[in-house]
């Protein structure tokens, strides 16, 4: 049930974590999953993929049926705990916030944990003891041993490519629940771009919203948000943007055509998942990076790198 470990060479494994893909990496953003798995192998990060888990609710179940949200996330945490790892790794901002929020609620309130565990056990899910910490891939490789390994793996380099980091919201705010870095002056993506031999491009909207959560219900409002980071990154001379969130990726990449229709501006800005950007520098295979799945072509950026 809990298998598909993708460990590196024997003796080279630095860390073993439970891996929660979330919806998008399982479905429309498969390129995120394949590049994450391939990158992890290069870094000696052993992933234990969780197969029997569900969607985290993406903030929507938290809003529609919050009690169900809490239980779904408790179930995910319980299966992560069952792998024996102390860390549940995510590759999506929204999964990160939803899981961390539920985890804090359970870890800091015995009474609530007891009630949720009674319900989990009733339907055949093992009780959760509260031992797991939820961490985004970004946090595992932006400092310490992960960062050292990243620097070694990124041997091909990005040759001074100008990359605009786009953090998105739910990996920064609320910092009380996330807390990895200063939400107004984050540094982790910049550190990774530098380690890969790229040049980070600075612009104010890198910490703002891409509009994704309301892109269906309030498209006009969402596009008004989406245009800011893309326009600013382009004005700052970025060759590409990188994001740790597949939802940001989807709106930045797939909805660029809608921005063009609405404003007449053609940005043609390549958008990369975090694992893809490092993957390019680390020489991952095209079959692992899967750039063909992007809506906006990544070719101009790859040509610059002569890949």
């Amino acid at each position: 049930m809990l298998t598909t470990g993708t460990n590196g060479k024997p003796g080279n494994t630095w860390r073993r974590v439970a891996y929660y893909k979330g919806c998008l990496a399982s479905l429309s953003a498969k390129e995120l999953d394949t590049s994450t798995i391939a990158l992890a192998r290069k870094l000696g990060l052993e992933l234990e993929a969780l197969e029997s888990v569900t969607c985290c609710g993406a903030g929507d179940i938290h809003e529609a049926e919050p009690d169900y949200y809490l239980h779904l996330n408790a179930r995910i945490l319980s299966y992560a705990e069952a792998t024996g790892s102390d860390t549940l790794m995510t590759v999506c901002n929204v999964c990160t916030l939803n899981l961390r929020q539920a985890n804090w609620q359970l870890q800091k309130d015995e009474e609530l944990l007891e009630r949720v565990n009674r319900n989990l056990e009733t339907v055949g899910v093992p009780a959760y003891s509260g031992s797991v910490e939820v961490k985004h891939l970004l946090w595992l490789i932006a400092e310490g041993e992960g960062y050292e390994r990243l620097k070694q793996a990124a041997h091909k380099g990005l040759k001074g490519l100008r990359v605009a980091p786009f953090y998105g919201c739910q990996i920064l705010r609320p910092s009380k629940l996330l807390g990895f870095e200063d939400p107004d002056r984050p540094w982790s993506l910049e550190a990774i771009i530098e380690a890969c031999g790229g040049e980070p491009v600075d612009y104010p909207a890198k910490i703002k919203c891409c509009g994704f959560p309301i892109i269906q219900a309030r498209e006009e409002t969402a596009l008004g948000e989406l245009i800011q980071p893309i326009e600013q990154a382009q004005e700052a001379g970025a060759d590409a943007m990188v994001t740790p969130c597949p939802l940001c990726h989807l709106s930045l990449d797939a909805w660029q055509s809608k921005l063009k229709a609405a404003t007449g501006k053609d940005f043609s800005m390549p958008i990369l998942h975090l694992s893809q950007l490092i993957g390019v520098a680390a020489g991952l295979e095209a079959s692992e990076l899967k750039f063909k799945r992007h809506v906006v072509s990544v070719e101009p950026m790859l040509e610059k790198l002569e890949v």
């Binding site: 919050p66 169900y68 309130d109 609530l112 629940l177 807390g179």
Partner: peptide, 18 residues
Amino acid sequence: AAGIVQGERGLARIERTD
């Protein structure tokens, strides 16, 4: 809303470390 309110007791106990 009760489903959200129930989680606030735990969240109020988080100590700011940063």
